[in-house]
Design a protein around this nucleic acid. Structure first.
Lengths: 121, 121
DNA sequence: CTGGATCCCGAATGATACTG
DNA sequence: CAGTATCATTCGGGATCCAG
């Protein structure tokens, strides 16, 4: 994810930070608490390990996500939202979630999409 | 802006709706009230009329923005945020704006960017 | 061996320049 | 302004590497 040199507004910077295809869902899933890479891979349907790692890495660089590595066996790493940046972005995503649900209900496509929606609100 | 067929979550749908390079800033500017195309073009530095029109069109298709055409002379068109969808997304953008400002302050790059930031909070 | 992480490359998409 | 061409980025597959 390449960042621009200039932004007219701080908002644009943040928008770029979360603009990847999988970033919103990853954050949304992380809102439920710490998890491992493999658990994330299971919960987010369609994502590959590679994409997951790439997006997690970027989210860590910007400061939304942090990770903790436990040495020992079996090897274990946990990812979680940072405080306050990670927690704050969730509030923005929550609004988007609300808009999305309303939009789908209005257009009668709610069931179709809400059924798949495994990550709870 | 091509939309996907499936989304795992309504949030992703909305994220895609506003994912273009200029969409957040256009919405942010519209928050200040109705305006014409040319006024938008002036206020959003670096945008071309073509990009502006393309993104406005998409924002109208999704329902964030509406336009009103005044017949008469000179010909006049005004764009504005829809209610409630347009107004709601502003709340999400406001959070991003806040995160962005905090981030820039922490990294000592606040002045540099905040100076350019012509659109008021 | 297992789970976590990186590299290389082609295909799809987005942004912008160019043109009528 | 719309249509097309061009250029930069992003996505995703697959191989591969690294560390307990």
């Amino acid at each position: 994810m390449k960042m621009r040199e200039d932004y007219t507004c701080p908002l644009e910077l943040v928008h770029d930070m979360i603009k990847g295809k999988w970033k919103p869902i990853i954050l949304w899933r992380l809102r439920l608490g710490k998890t491992s890479l493999s658990k994330l891979e299971q919960d987010i349907q369609g994502i590959t390990q590679k994409m997951l790692l790439q997006h997690l890495k970027e989210l860590m660089e910007y400061g939304f996500v942090e990770k903790q590595t436990y040495s020992g066996y079996p090897l274990h790493v946990e990812y979680y939202l940072s405080d306050p940046m990670g927690k704050e972005i969730i509030e923005a995503l929550r609004i988007m979630q609300h808009i999305g649900i309303t939009y789908l209900e209005k257009n009668g496509k709610a069931e179709e999409l809400l059924k798949k929606h495994i990550i709870p609100d």
